[in-house]
């Protein structure tokens, strides 16, 4: 087991967003979290790399046990240095070029020399066919290019898990395909991923496991076929029938 979360709870003022989440992930798995907007999917992801801090709960990551309510700065940094995140709005560093965006984490997160970091960054950019954009700033790139660089920025760190927070939601429809292609390619290479998305076709075709999330709780979990074709829970059925997309 690579990651195990037990009874994770999170509240914003009086609003309980996560009501005791239990989730386990094995190395190489692609877990896709689906569910209505505002159900707490993104908050769950942000609690895994501590961009939000849980009120209570336990986490075991790479056999290291962590008390989510009481984390040290070293523990936070350790988890962040073994995970990576791809954001909905890309969040590329606006004051850095494409190649700098990719190399910064290697230099300042993994203490690699600038020379080595730039070599790795170049190689990664080349692998997705964006080497010609290495000196471009984010504002000079399309949304699709930015997000693909966002994915490279995450994966170049060789993380144990990549967290994807609705990576295609902010993209124009014609740009979604290229990003999903890169994600599928990563999944095929055995990268462990947790993906929050509304792309049901991606969930069906790429996920090893689909988790249906609603009102801060995991309602149902199973293989894509189990969740999409034979949902057991009424809420899951309602959600799936309300989606216009042909999945």
């Amino acid at each position: 087991m690579l990651l195990e979360i037990k009874n994770l709870k999170k509240k914003f003022v009086n609003n309980t967003v996560l009501k005791g989440i239990d989730l386990s992930i094995n190395a190489g798995e692609v877990v896709v979290i689906i569910g209505p907007s505002g159900s707490g999917k993104t908050t769950l992801l942000r609690n895994i790399n501590f961009l939000e801090q849980a009120d209570s709960g336990k986490m075991t990551f790479k056999n290291k046990r962590l008390n989510l309510a009481n984390l040290s700065n070293e523990e936070i940094l350790w988890v962040r240095r073994h995970t990576a995140m791809v954001f909905q709005n890309y969040n590329l560093f606006k004051n850095k070029t494409a190649i700098e965006n990719i190399s910064e984490g290697l230099i300042f997160g993994q203490n690699k020399s600038k020379k080595v970091a730039l070599q790795l960054a170049k190689k990664s950019l080349d692998s997705v066919g964006l080497l010609d954009k290495q000196d471009f700033y984010p504002a000079q790139l399309s949304g699709g290019q930015q997000q693909r660089i966002g994915i490279v920025r995450a994966t170049v760190l060789n993380p144990d898990i990549v967290l994807f927070d609705e990576p295609t939601s902010a993209l124009d429809p014609e740009l979604v395909g290229t990003v999903l292609y890169d994600m599928k390619h990563l999944a095929d290479q055995g990268q462990t991923m947790i993906v929050v998305t509304h792309q049901m076709s991606f969930a069906r075709n790429v996920a090893s496991r689909v988790v249906f999330f609603a009102d801060g709780e995991i309602i149902e979990t199973g293989t894509p076929s189990e969740v999409f074709d034979h949902p057991k829970n009424k809420r899951t059925k309602q959600f799936l029938s309300a989606i216009a997309e042909d999945y």
Binding site: N49, R80, R81, L92, K94, G105, F108, G109, Q110, A154
Partner: peptide
Amino acid sequence: VDKGQYEAALSVGMDVKHAFLQILMPQ
């Protein structure tokens, strides 16, 4: 400065000091 910039810096493993010096301060 967009809060997401700071979060992105933390997510690639930067500590608070480097996130400030490399990302927040120049912006």
